[in-house]
């Protein structure tokens, strides 16, 4: 269509230079690039500009008047809180992603086995935690964890357990933010795995059943290998989002008690916005990049290798 339109405007007798320009313009790839250009520019403006700007910010002093090079980074390395944040971010992201994957996979299996006419209802209900705005659901969780009125503690009290300091104690605070993150994020894994499960041909399971595989062997030898790429991509995507999580920690614990539940985003916010040291906050947030890059390179390399193999 585009080619036809462009061919229509071609006139004989054009100079060589003009005709070569016209040829370039006629190429489908050129036309496609030009059509995508507005979006590319928008992405450049929204992603690359802030990224470069935060790099620039991270090299300034607190009043943002003087260039200090790697000064902010070196300062962070010497602070114990920074290493605590690194540790907590890793524990938070890895534990949450692991459990989200396990729960998502298990629930996806159950939903997959529900007859089709009832499956839509279950899918809809199970997606609720993911579609509610996290700020709202976190407030509800905050109420459930409340030191005085905690519904959880009330239930535990019936069995003479507790009260549990859900957000007051270091272990329980970490547990709580991870729990809420899993609650919000598991449906995403469920829906991705459900789609992947549906793409595994039934005949593979039938062939495996005849070959002598029990249910566990069918999962181990058929389902998991067939879903590996989806599992890897979902895990990577979730790892990035969970690592950069802000709202859950900010609403439930604000990084407390004694900075033990801070992740990069909340600590960066605390230092940069609340502490009025934007360059230091920018430096903290930039630490996510190398860690996530390493994870992304490993996971994507694995996916590419398997893609080439099969």
């Amino acid at each position: 269509m585009v080619d036809a339109v462009l061919q229509g405007v071609q006139t004989p007798g054009a100079t060589r230079k003009r005709s070569s320009l016209r040829r370039t313009m006629q190429r489908k790839s050129t036309v496609a690039f030009l059509m995508a250009l507005p979006l590319i520019l928008m992405i450049a403006f929204l992603v690359i500009y802030p990224a470069l700007y935060s790099l620039h910010l991270a090299t300034l002093n607190k009043s943002m008047e003087r260039f200090v090079g790697f000064g902010n980074f070196l300062f962070l390395f010497k602070r114990e809180t920074f290493w605590k944040v690194v540790e907590q971010s890793c524990i938070f992201a890895l534990t949450a992603v692991f459990f989200k994957a396990i729960i998502g996979f298990t629930v996806a299996h159950f939903v997959h086995n529900v007859p089709n006419d009832r499956q839509r209802k279950w899918r809809g209900m199970l997606l609720v935690p993911w579609v509610i705005p996290p700020a709202m659901s976190c407030l509800a969780w905050l109420w459930l964890f409340d030191p005085s009125y905690s519904a959880f503690n009330w239930v535990l009290g019936i069995f003479n357990i507790g009260p549990v300091p859900w957000t007051g104690d270091a272990f329980w605070a970490r547990f709580s933010v991870i729990l809420v993150n899993i609650w919000i994020g598991a449906p995403f894994f469920m829906i991705m795995y459900l789609a992947a499960l549906k793409s595994v041909p039934d005949q593979l399971y039938e062939a495996a059943a005849i070959d002598g595989a029990n249910w566990w062997q069918r999962i181990w030898y058929i389902t998991l290998p067939m879903m590996r790429n989806i599992i890897a991509i979902t895990a990577l995507f979730s790892l990035i989002v969970t690592f950069a999580n802000f709202d859950i920690v900010q609403i439930l614990t604000q990084g407390g008690p004694i900075d033990l539940t801070h992740v990069f985003a909340t600590w960066s916010f605390t230092l940069g916005i609340q502490g009025n040291d934007i360059p230091l906050g920018a430096a903290v947030s930039l630490f996510m990049v190398p860690i996530l890059t390493v994870a992304a390179v490993f996971i994507l390399r694995d996916i590419t290798r398997r893609g080439n193999e099969s």
Binding site: L204, E206, A207, A209, I210, D211, G212, P225, S310
Partner: peptide, 20 residues
């Protein structure tokens, strides 16, 4: 008796080979 204990082997229309 489940398929695995019937001592049968089956060839499917679309082969059903394990792609991995």
């Amino acid at each position: 008796v489940p398929p695995k204990d019937r001592d049968i082997a089956m060839v499917f229309q679309n082969y059903a080979l394990y792609p991995h």
